[in-house]
Amino acid sequence: MKKLSRANASLSKEVLERKKAKKALQESEAKLREKAEQLERALQKLQETQAQLVHTEKLSALGELTAGIAHEINNPINFINANISYATNYVGDLLDLIELYGKYYANPGEEISEKIETIELDFLSEDLPKIMSSMKVGTDRICAIVASMRNFSRIDRDAMSLASIHEGIDSTLLILQHRLKGVGNNPAIQLIKEYGDLPQVECYAGQLNQVFMNIISNAIDVLRESSDPSVLKLQQRVPTIEISTELGEGDRAVIRISDNGPGMTEAVKSQIFNHFFTTKPAGKGTGLGLSISYQIVVEKHGGNLQCISVSGEGTQFVISLPIAQQPAATSRLLEMQEAV
């Protein structure tokens, strides 16, 4: 009987020890799984941060390159543009003088008559002012593009500065203008702007220009991919991008960028601000544009970036920015940037 009791006690002790060992093993496995998950999250965060740094570094290098090109073009084109006005006046004076000669010397010598006929003086007198005018239009256009390049590629320093939101949007649109034009069977994209009365905003202007570029470029891509000419003709629909601004409540600048494309499903909309998420084919999108835009608006400016979209009814992005940064908020933003 005593042997049986000892055997039972020994067995109970062994069972208890095995339970303890099993529990310890389970706890150890749980800790290992937790550690593995932490490492996986850390690796993912590291990859996202690395991709952002590479993307930001490329944008910074591109901005400096663009600013340098704009500077190099700016001086000679300004010289040409300024002198075209003088040249136009000189050409006008010379043509007036030729007309006076023709008025008072109606019968020039044979050699002069032959030369007049050879150079087609009447056509030249009519066409030359048109050429000078078109050259002026061309140089004005180049000057505007250079100004937009310089505005778009503004290199942001450590501190924010006051900038015009409308100038930033306009410079972005000028750079993207060639993509709005119709090509072949693809119709032109209609652009509607409704600007409100906005004061200058305290911001990193170059970074906000990148946000405008990302959102408007995406809208153009979506409209191009969904713009079957035969379907558009049947629906009598013109691919359109609308951009509006207004002064919102709480002294905030509100920018709305809309398109009348196919819209998004809830599944897509819920992921658009995630790193590396893209609906574009492989090699055509990094999946970083909107996630970096969100970071710029929300984390670096204390603003809001919202997407409103219904499948089949188009998409609207709403950007809300404080007109002036509060000192306390600025300190928090700087801390967040340093943490990143």
Rank of each mutant, 00 (worst) to 15 (best):
L124V: 11
I98G: 06
Q207C: 15
L16G: 09
Q47N: 05
R224A: 05
N274V: 09
E48I: 00
T265A: 14
K300P: 03
M264A: 08
N185S: 06
K2D: 14
P262D: 05
V298D: 04
I98Y: 13
G302P: 04
I272P: 01
I220Q: 12
G283L: 07
G287A: 13
S133C: 08
A51Y: 02
K58W: 10
I155K: 07
A267F: 02
P262R: 13
P262C: 02
G184Y: 05
Q177V: 07
V298I: 08
P327E: 01
Y294W: 09
R256T: 14
Q210G: 08
E249G: 09
R33Y: 05
I220L: 14
I84E: 00
D228Y: 04
I69Y: 01
E14H: 06
A159K: 14
F212R: 13
V137D: 09
I215Y: 04
S125P: 01
E37I: 11
V298A: 14
I69M: 07
V222P: 04
H71S: 01
Y105C: 12
I73A: 12
Q337H: 05
S85P: 01
E313V: 00
G263A: 12
E120T: 12
Q295P: 04
T245F: 02
A328P: 01
S134K: 00
C203H: 04
E110L: 04
E246P: 06
E246K: 11
L162H: 05
A36Y: 06
N8A: 15
I80F: 04
S270V: 06
L53Q: 05
K35N: 07
E120A: 08
E14W: 10
I142P: 02
Q236Y: 14
K300C: 00
E202C: 08
Q38D: 11
V15D: 15
Q200F: 00
K3G: 15
A144S: 14
G263K: 15
E249W: 03
G302D: 15
S293M: 03
K20D: 11
A42F: 02
R179M: 00
N214C: 08
E29H: 03
T330A: 05
S161H: 13
T240N: 10
E34A: 07
L290V: 15
A106M: 06
K280G: 06
R154K: 08
E126Q: 10
A21E: 02
A21M: 06
S28D: 12
L162V: 11
K269R: 12
L39I: 11
E48P: 00
S171D: 03
T279D: 04
R6L: 11
D156Q: 04
R150G: 09
L180H: 02
I189G: 09
G206F: 02
V146W: 13
M213F: 11
S331L: 02
V222H: 11
L333S: 03
H55R: 09
V310I: 10
C143Y: 08
T265P: 01
I73W: 00
Q236A: 11
R332V: 08
F212A: 01
G63W: 03
D259R: 15
S12D: 13
L16M: 08
T315F: 06
R18K: 13
K3E: 14
A82Y: 12
K45S: 05
A67F: 05
L321K: 00
S244F: 06
L290C: 06
M160L: 13
S226T: 14
T49D: 02
V201F: 02
E48T: 00
S134M: 07
G285F: 10
D197G: 13
A36H: 10
